[in-house]
């Protein structure tokens, strides 16, 4: 069954005096504390969610700086010892001609995290503001952030694989640097920050604008 009656205005659970369970989609009378079906806590809107979003966002951002400044990999090869940060590692790969892999590393460890910081901040600001871009775009942004955020962990896994695998004593060894720790924390905190965001507020902001409902 695809869409039917697309021209009608949607009624939100809150307008109908109901509260929805975001985990199992069941409706309950407004004020019910816990979902009787799945046991999740019920709130009509996570009113204080923006504070949590910002708090976790800031911790994530703070961890992101040492993640880029400290070395990620410590490579010991015969007599030379090289420390490479995320960016210098990608540059090295590009020098060796592995442009595809360099691009994956740069996208997963630099472009995606920075994009995420920007997107979460934008969403958190935009639900407080009237007007602005359409809810559909903002929702798309939220979904992309939620889906893609986990993929930043790839760099941590690469470091884990390399440091376990490349352990040939006296010839070549690779060990993780402090940046790995901070980078993992940064990814985890931004994931938590995105999870704390309540997407229903995106639509409330639109309803407050009294825009023509855009049902696509």
């Amino acid at each position: 069954m695809e869409l039917s009656g697309t021209s009608q205005k949607t009624i939100t659970a809150r307008e109908a005096g109901l509260v929805a369970c975001t985990r199992c989609a069941r409706a309950w009378p407004l004020g019910t504390p816990v979902c009787g079906r799945c046991g999740a806590k019920l709130v009509s809107r996570k009113e204080n969610s923006l504070q949590r979003v910002w708090a976790l966002w800031i911790v994530g951002l703070i961890c992101y700086f040492p993640a880029n400044l400290y070395p990620m990999l410590l490579t010991r090869q015969l007599f030379t010892e090289t420390d490479s940060t995320i960016i210098s590692g990608a540059v090295d790969l590009a020098h060796h001609g592995a442009f595809g892999i360099a691009a994956i590393i740069l996208i997963a460890s630099v472009v995606i995290p920075l994009g995420k910081f920007w997107a979460i901040a934008f969403l958190a600001v935009s639900v407080r503001k009237q007007g602005g871009i359409a809810s559909h775009r903002r929702l798309l942004m939220f979904e992309v952030v939620e889906y893609i955020g986990r993929w930043s962990m790839i760099d941590i896994f690469v470091v884990a694989i390399l440091s376990a695998l490349v352990q040939i004593k006296g010839l070549v060894t690779i060990n993780p640097g402090p940046a790995a720790f901070f980078f993992a924390l940064s990814v985890i905190f931004t994931m938590l920050s995105a999870q704390a965001f309540d997407p229903r507020m995106i639509w409330d902001a639109q309803d407050n604008d009294n825009e023509v409902p855009d049902h696509g």
Partner: peptide, 10 residues
């Protein structure tokens, strides 16, 4: 009833 968990439409 079923409520959309993303946008609260009922």
């Amino acid at each position: 009833l079923i409520v959309c968990p993303v946008c609260d439409a009922t």
